[in-house]
Design a protein around this nucleic acid. Structure first.
Lengths: 236, 236
DNA sequence: ATCGCTAATTGCGATTTCGCAAATAAGAAT
DNA sequence: ATTCTTATTTGCGAAATCGCAATTAGCGAT
């Protein structure tokens, strides 16, 4: 789509999916890609769509969302820059397993799935890095099952915002800001609870001075306190 | 360990992990394996152990169990015959992510991880089948997150026993029997609830004639009714 | 600056699910 | 057959969380 813009190898050279690849190989792969921009709120692909591309997020944040048979949504994960997404091919799927929505304006590279086998076969470290990514996601998902099965809402919410802060956090003079718009509803969809309960928890933490939050904005002031709550320790 | 016993290609020829492989290839792979027996209750590997082997279950059932930091256990999945397990290499892990326990006497093949790369490189369809398995497990795990996040206990328990019946069920003249010893506690560890709640649900269903259950034994008489409950429909 | 929309807050009663405790039952071992 | 161990059942009160509803607040668009 955008073959005119020259994409430089340095854009992707240091990203996890490409470690271990030669510059010439990177250039070859880059030459197969299109670069795309998605405005905040745009849907990049939808659950069940035929998977015709796979993607690399260069800049922004993406929410991966699944919808239950009864219409409730849950956020399966948040993709940050440097991560692959929509890699249905790696899982031998021919449809996407979830919606991908731009949480902010996003810059992505995308490749036609036609190129997948070619790339995977030509560059074993790419294949290997991909497997590693999938393995990590499986482990994370499994960890979430554990949390949902054994922890109370308060712990899950604390743990989720601490993890988000670690993943996407930006230091400000007040504390660590979660660097994309995130509502109470979003947090509830990541933790299996309701926006009401999240709101109550945030209010309680705010009154203790542990967080400072506003409309779609969360700043952690005392992340260690929250980490304690996440771990299920004392609740003072 | 058991090179004396001649293992025949027909043992594994039709199993998912090996579809698309030539008989000679299968024989080569088989020649690298050891066959092992694990008595009911034996632990095959433990979470965090250095992963030195990967396994194929030839006969029996295996519980894959994770333990939370606070000691609660949850059953991540149940492995049935024909499935690979302990494939840490496929996920680029060097430790096992969970315990594997023989739910009944089990017959397994195992391979040293030394052989993993060799096998994967020599037999692309094995690599591909493995990716597919991992993809399926990721999807299942994700589905479980959805259930835990959005459904009530009753639905989750119903859904779990229906799925177990589909996976391991054995037709009897009464109905579909889940073909390995499974306690109320086990079910609770698969659904994120307590054995008490499971017991109450089973009692209720038994009094409606939907199931018949005893000590570590569950038979589904009216699985469609349970499937309705699982789907969250009426509760009559 | 004002309007309008969406997000957030919070009180309160309703439900769900838990957790304890005590009793019973089913097999396994002797 | 008897004893022992482990699984199951069930009542009941407690706790966590939900869900509704009404209000308030923040921010973008006009």
């Amino acid at each position: 789509m955008n073959k005119m813009t020259l994409l430089d190898v340095s854009l992707i050279k240091n990203l996890d999916p490409f470690v271990g690849m030669e510059d010439t190989a990177l250039q070859d792969v880059l030459d197969l890609s299109d670069s795309m921009h998605y405005a905040k709120g745009k849907m990049i692909f939808r659950e069940g769509d035929q998977a015709k591309c796979f993607y690399l997020l260069l800049d922004g944040h993406i929410r991966v969302v699944k919808t239950s048979p009864h219409g409730e949504q849950i956020i399966a994960r948040v993709i940050s820059s440097g991560e692959l997404f929509g890699i249905a091919k790696a899982l031998h799927r021919d449809t996407y397993p979830a919606d991908a929505v731009a949480a902010v304006d996003c810059l992505v590279l995308c490749w036609s799935n036609r190129h997948w086998d070619k790339i995977v076969n030509a560059y074993p470290s790419f294949a290997s890095n991909t497997n590693k990514t999938v393995g990590k996601r499986l482990a994370e998902t499994q960890a979430r099952v554990m949390e949902l099965a054994t922890e109370r809402v308060e712990q899950r919410v604390a743990s989720t915002i601490v993890k988000l802060a670690a993943q996407t956090g930006k230091k400000t003079n007040e504390g660590i800001l979660i660097d994309f718009p995130i509502s109470r509803q979003d947090v509830s969809e990541m933790t299996g609870t309701t926006l009401h309960t999240v709101s109550r928890l945030m209010s309680a933490w705010e009154s203790k001075g542990w967080v400072k939050s506003g409309r779609q904005k969360i700043t952690l002031l005392e992340s260690h306190k929250l980490a304690m709550v996440a771990a299920g320790h004392d609740k003072n």
